Simulated assay, not measured.
Amino acid sequence: YPLRRAKNINTFLAQASKVFPFHIDVISGQEEARLIYQGVAHYIHHDENRLVIDIGGGSTELIIGKHFKHKLLSSRNMGCVSYTKQFFADGIINEKRFNKAQIKAEQELEVIFANYISTGWQSVVGTSGTIKSILAMLSANDPDQKNITLERLLELKTQFLAAKTIDNLLIEGLSPERQVSICGGLAILIAIFQLFDITEMDYSDFSLREGLLHEMQQKLALKDIRTNTIANLSERNTIDKVHAQRVANTADWLFLQVQKEWQLDSLDNHQLLVWAAQLHEVGLGINSSGLHKHSAYVVENSQLPGFTQQQQTLLSCMIRFYRKRIRLEESPTLLSVP
């Protein structure tokens, strides 16, 4: 299951930070989807819309984009591990269980179906270990099999049903590590193919890791996507940019005056303060009364490409408490952010 869905995630991160020598960032499902697409886009080039699919252990990401720009992002709460535990917990494989898993996956996808069909795509690319394992099984006896089709997926499903149990899934191309969770992954992939009427899918080894590496390279080159995210959010909410920048400049000056004395060494937190100041009136379109609360709500619940969950929480809290007394009980998640 994704760490981001854990109820005690911030408690875990606080404890982990005491023993782990590196900072831990937890990304949202939307951010994971964006990074997956960037990983594919920077290594595989298409001139038309493409649908990218990544089936993980606890979530499945679906992205439509063109060149380096995504158009639609979605992360659904269904994965090979979670679905195998839900529908094949005792290791028994049969038609009824497969159908239940596929129906559940289709229901999970219904909410995005209309927008994705309306946007459309001309090619489909699959990533992740689950899809790689499925392709390995399909091509084990056919080296010329370079892509995945619905027909071959249904043939593979028949092989799974014939095995009757997960322990008996001794199929060439399937590793022991993947064997225990592959049933849920196959059910999800068949559901996606059938619901979106996909005829064939190519595979890419490039995914989240490559997208993250590219993002880090961009930051080192001072091309932080978060700057564009803040600018776009400001633009969409018609913020008084001149006033917002005056407030940001003041916050920046105050930070520098106390930075040494208060031992404020985090450059990232310094930048978050400046961005919070730039967005402090982002909720003005809702109501001028209780502006700080409305602005914090907008920031907390918006899609902010480039920001981790912790960064988005801190950004929202700085805006929430820039006026009046700080009431930490109103933001319990802030108390456990490491």
Rank of each mutant, 00 (worst) to 15 (best):
L189K: 03
L3R: 05
F98W: 07
I134E: 02
K132Y: 06
F12N: 07
F88D: 05
L208G: 08
F196A: 04
R178L: 00
D197F: 01
I44T: 13
Q259W: 04
A187N: 03
G185L: 02
F12E: 04
L195Q: 15
N99R: 06
L212Q: 12
K66N: 15
W253P: 01
S133Y: 01
R236L: 13
T199N: 14
T333R: 12
K104D: 15
A136L: 01
Q245M: 11
Y83N: 06
L109R: 02
F196Q: 02
N301M: 05
I9G: 07
L222F: 11
Q179I: 00
E48A: 12
S139D: 03
T250G: 12
K96R: 12
Q312L: 08
R226C: 02
Q159M: 11
L51D: 00
S82D: 02
T313V: 11
S28W: 08
N147A: 06
R246I: 02
E31C: 10
C80E: 02
M318T: 01
S331R: 10
I182P: 10
R327I: 06
F160P: 01
E177P: 00
H45C: 10
N269V: 03
G184Q: 01
E151N: 11
L186T: 00
E110W: 03
L212P: 03
L153G: 01
K66V: 07
S82K: 09
L212I: 11
E330D: 15
N249Q: 12
K69R: 10
V299Y: 09
D167K: 09
L335I: 05
H42D: 15
L233R: 05
A162I: 05
G306W: 04
Q312C: 06
F113V: 01
E108S: 08
T308Y: 13
L335S: 08
L153Y: 05
T308W: 10
Q30K: 12
S266R: 11
L315D: 03
Y83F: 15
I92F: 13
R152Q: 13
F160G: 04
V40F: 13
K96M: 12
F206Q: 12
V298M: 12
Q312H: 05
S316T: 06
I171E: 04
Q257T: 05
L212F: 13
Q86I: 00
R152G: 04
L304R: 04
E61H: 06
S336Q: 11
